[in-house]
């Protein structure tokens, strides 16, 4: 079993609902919560988040596009964050989920350095490193109805840009989405074999845009000059 997420960069609207739902669920979770907030009502609020959404612009106007990129733990197959951990607090479950035992972590930070994605954060209130659990306590909970046994971020996404499933099963929705849309991984060159896949933005049809003429006519220039003079 190889559990992970598919994130559709074409439909993500960048609303941060996944990040907020994550913070809410995991803040109450016995797995790694509470997630510290530093100065929540102060001048410079900050805190521990498992999921962060960043916004980028690709291309050059008028061929440009905004791409919203939510990022959390990729639950890598070759997870160096686990191998560098000196205490054994970091481990990988049978189903591929990478977790941190909060009772064993000594807060040395080395795993946060070994992660190329910045998916792990040190919680200075608890003195331990915390990370995305893929809501292991939700997906394992047999008391929940089957459709609710999914990570909080997936359930919260209003654009259905997030999908959860088993990548080892070629029939699963995530495997089929990846095959159909050419799902990609981030920084595959490092050899970590991240499990989470991103569906690249589709090429949108070109939108006609208003452009200013390169050389305005003589009349245009003269009238512009007169207008300026009058305004003064």
């Amino acid at each position: 079993m190889k559990r992970g997420l598919v994130i559709d960069l074409d439909t993500c609207v960048g609303c941060h609902a996944c990040a907020v739902a994550c913070k809410e669920w995991n803040g109450d979770s016995a797995l790694s919560g509470p997630l510290a907030d530093y100065e929540p009502y102060g001048a410079a609020p900050s805190g521990v988040w498992f999921n962060r959404v960043r916004h980028y612009e690709t291309g050059v106007y008028p061929e440009n596009k905004t791409v919203n990129v939510p990022m959390s733990c990729m639950h890598c197959e070759e997870a160096d964050c686990v191998t560098v951990c000196p205490t054994g607090a970091s481990y990988k479950r049978e189903d591929g989920i990478v977790l941190v035992n909060q009772e064993q972590c000594m807060g040395c930070n080395l795993c946060t350095w070994a992660c190329p994605y910045g998916a792990r954060e040190l919680d200075t209130a608890s003195g331990t490193v915390k990370k995305c659990t893929l809501c292991a306590d939700r997906i394992d909970d047999t008391l929940l109805p089957p459709q609710d046994r999914q990570p909080a971020c997936v359930l919260a996404c209003p654009a259905h840009a997030r999908h959860f499933g088993d990548f080892d099963d070629p029939q699963s929705q995530v495997s089929q989405l990846v095959a159909e849309r050419g799902g990609v991984t981030m920084l595959p060159e490092l050899g970590y074999q991240p499990v989470n896949r991103y569906l690249p933005p589709r090429n949108a049809p070109k939108v006609s845009v208003m452009t200013t003429p390169d050389s305005a006519s003589l009349m245009h220039k003269v009238s512009g000059w007169i207008n300026k003079m009058i305004e003064r």
Binding site: A44, R52, H55, V60, V69, T185, Y198
Partner: peptide, 25 residues
């Protein structure tokens, strides 16, 4: 481009890092 998996994008720039103040990262 490697970091975002958008290998064919000629130019990518950060518009907003998503947080208002400094973070652990």
């Amino acid at each position: 481009q490697d970091a975002l998996g958008l290998k064919s994008a000629a130019q990518i720039k950060l518009l907003d890092a998503g947080h208002t103040h400094r973070t652990f990262l």
